[in-house]
Amino acid sequence: MLSFIGRRLLVAIPTIVLISVLVFFLQKLLPGDPVLALAGEDRNPEILEFLREKYRLNDPLYVQYFNWIGNALTGDLGVSLRTQQPVLTLLAEKLPVTFQLAIMALVIAVVIGVPAGIISAYHKGTWIDWLANVVALSGLSVPNFWLGIMMILLVSVKLGWLPASGYQPFTDDPLQSIRTMLMPAFVLGTGLAATLMRHTRSAMLGVLQSDYVRTARAKGLSEKRVVMKHALRNALVPVVTVITLLFGELLAGAVLTEQIFTIPGFGKLVVDAVFNRDYAVVQGIVLCTAIAFVLMNILSDALYRVLNPRMSDQ
């Protein structure tokens, strides 16, 4: 298993290099001059030139790229053009926030989606299955921003149960931190729950028809054991893959929800950086997300092998 992960990490290196090249050069192709954004009203050519020199924007592109990537390897992703803070510090600040949000959303998605999928597959074609599918479809169709706003209005404004915003670091006050993140996590999680439910349902439907489930019944096992042990073990294999990939997506995709609930995470960082042409920050974020994605992929394959004994001894 370790050698499998090692091999996958080696293979991931070219992928990450390719991503870094794309990130860097696509960014340069975008219209707009960061120096202009930086200098604000002051269009004094000397100052502009000074800034260009300072941030080495006059070097040939490939030199700029190698500078950037070389520094990145030593953990230096440059400084924000806007706030002058090191990009790495910004990322280290925001990543745990988004991470917590993503984990909470995922837990909610799994807790709702997987059992719903199991139940609706087991009761295929009955009203239970029908109901679960209708709810799932609505979950998929309701836009997150709308659900978010509705929840704020209902749960915070009207009922006053949960705060509408205000982020609390987990390390300071875990309980309060979870409370403030509950609504955004729920908004993100319900959409994913629908996706997960449908994946679980279809995996389960296939497995419930299988010969080995019939064998389990022929042994006299209870339906609960047949479903939870013999069927689920096999149905989870593809579902776990989906879950890990969803997690990667969550890290990158919580932008809108973070905006609605004013959570100071990755999403807010990205939006601010893009609008201010803060190259260094955007590049750092994209690179970071890409690496997270690649790692999630490796994790998902590793889990797949753990769950699927046919794969693990190859």
Binding site: D211, Y212, T215, A218, G220, H230, P309
Partner: peptide, 23 residues
């Protein structure tokens, strides 16, 4: 269920797929 696998048992036609691949 109490009888199945105990007082009466069955061997199936498809040996390749009748055992649980994950156990």
């Amino acid at each position: 269920q109490a009888l199945r696998g105990d007082r009466m048992a069955m061997i199936f036609q498809e040996p390749m797929t009748s055992l649980n691949p994950a156990l």
